[in-house]
Design a protein around this nucleic acid. Structure first.
Lengths: 285, 285
DNA sequence: TAAATCGTTCATAAAAAGAGAAGATATTGA
DNA sequence: TCAATATCTTCTCTTTTTATGAACGATTTA
């Protein structure tokens, strides 16, 4: 079945005659006769009743006309999707939880307000998964710790971020021995921060009593407040948390490298939507 | 824009590669490449980002995919409309008010119950209009007084019907003089019955004091009950009405010819739906 | 009655779709 | 590392589809 067949058929129904339809569609009437016949053969029903030298729509034809018009209208919508200069598309963004929680919400809201016809699909993932999904083409843009050096990818600094040491307030200047007597709370096994924390522990010769994996920032803070554990967390998260959790203390440590968040996307990506999205996200609030 | 282009595009999106899409659609991959390119040129956007030897859907392509799938699904619905053996169509029926009111309702309900996929459009019209609409192809079937003798039309008796003289009960055996002192109520100007009534008045030498046109049976009955007027109405209507209006009286009159209702439709109508509809309506309740 | 209109058929021309080979690049496997 | 395989694309050529225009029969209009 072809859209042109449907258009021919609808024109005949609307105009009443083949000749008028031919005039409307700038073609010859024999063409219309043939195409409508094809359509009837395809469907197995008579769409018109031929009587003398005129066409009368059959009940079947009337029903088919309703559907045909819907199909044509929807095809027209598809055809016209990109005719105006509005940005339209579906962008898939992946981001580290810390980026999603602390840096992105207001910026995404602003982008959505300025670009209402672009659908954003946003999913939180650990950094290894993000890179994998970006390479597979499942994601258009990721916000992850970087930069990622790869011939196909581009990285650009998004947000400065570093891990800080978070301890109970009662223990304002913890020594290595203090920390070694405590529990360590880490976010997730596949999270990139884990590697940095491990490096820090090794450098500082801290051997925590035990390691607990907790996939929730607020749970980690609650545990630290309880007084028997510590953690290494992104500074932006901690800054927000100290207002709600009074009994925690944090400090920067040189042994914990900076761990900035980068935009990463494909180098040879033709669509301009990605770049506009990045430009929008980069603007100060 | 062609449905085949949309199908090619969607196959590539779903399969991920041109080669896989070609295998699915039983064609050669160069063909797909070309058709997708055409589509991109037509829309003015890149649907895929070409990187190395693979295709990645762009944000625009993702959006277009959603629409394209809808178009294809709806086209498929249209294609499959008549694939089963259920009767489907839109039948337009016109009928005299008397037929619609007294004879048709239960039969139409029964037909609808047996044939749920046939849409019925039913409109009441006076007989001249009915014939006109049937000839114009605006109606598939009419129920009107007949038979209509016409080379293109077929008539078949539907319901026996005749006009009866309806008078106030107080005047059980009205004379010509009685009636000539009264008002006459007639249904509508364009109604076929009007001619019969005029013929009756002339034959019987009745000259009513005045003629009122009232387009409502129940209003006519109310006026007759008031005692100063009479009317000539279809027997089936009157029979129903006497139960509700006690103060009216009716009698058959030879001067009022029978006025039966006929099915009338086009002789050369190929669609079987009309005939099935008539068969259904003809069955006894 | 003559002229115009209508839908259809047919032969033919134009356009589109498809096939298949060849090329450039990238991935896989030995 | 190097050949083998797989990717998409470009090109030419063939087939298929679509459109044209004239002719025809039938009907309607003037």
């Amino acid at each position: 079945m072809k859209l042109s067949q449907l258009a021919f058929f609808c024109a005949v129904v609307e105009q009443g005659t083949v000749a008028a339809a031919a005039a409307q569609l700038n073609c010859v009437s024999s063409n219309i006769t043939t195409r409508v016949r094809e359509l009837e053969d395809l469907l197995g029903v008579s769409l018109f009743s031929r009587e003398k030298n005129r066409l009368l729509v059959t009940p079947e034809g009337r029903l088919f006309y309703q559907k045909a018009k819907q199909v044509l209208a929807m095809a027209q919508e598809a055809r016209a999707l990109f005719k105006d200069d509005a940005e339209r598309g579906v962008i898939r963004v992946g981001a580290l939880d810390v980026a999603l929680t602390n840096h992105l919400p207001e910026r995404i809201a602003r982008y959505r307000a300025n670009t209402p016809h672009v659908e954003l699909h946003i999913r939180p993932e650990p950094s290894l998964m993000l890179e994998q999904l970006l390479m597979d083409g499942e994601l258009d843009l990721i916000l992850t710790d970087g930069p990622i050096i790869h011939p196909l990818l581009v990285s650009r600094l998004a947000f400065r971020e570093r891990l800080v040491l978070v301890t109970p307030k009662a223990l304002s200047a913890p020594t290595v021995d203090d920390l070694s007597r405590m529990e360590l709370y880490v976010f997730g096994q596949t999270c990139h921060y884990r590697r940095q924390v491990d490096g820090y522990l090794e450098t500082s010769k801290i051997k925590p009593r035990s390691v607990m994996e907790i996939e929730s920032f607020s749970s980690i803070f609650a545990c630290i407040e309880a007084g028997v554990g510590f953690s290494c967390l992104p500074e932006s998260v901690v800054e927000q948390a100290v207002t709600r959790h009074g009994k925690i203390h944090f400090e920067r440590t040189d042994s914990l490298e900076s761990s900035d968040i980068y935009y990463v996307w494909r180098k040879n990506y033709t669509s301009p939507l990605i770049h506009r999205l990045i430009e929008s996200l980069e603007q100060e609030l």
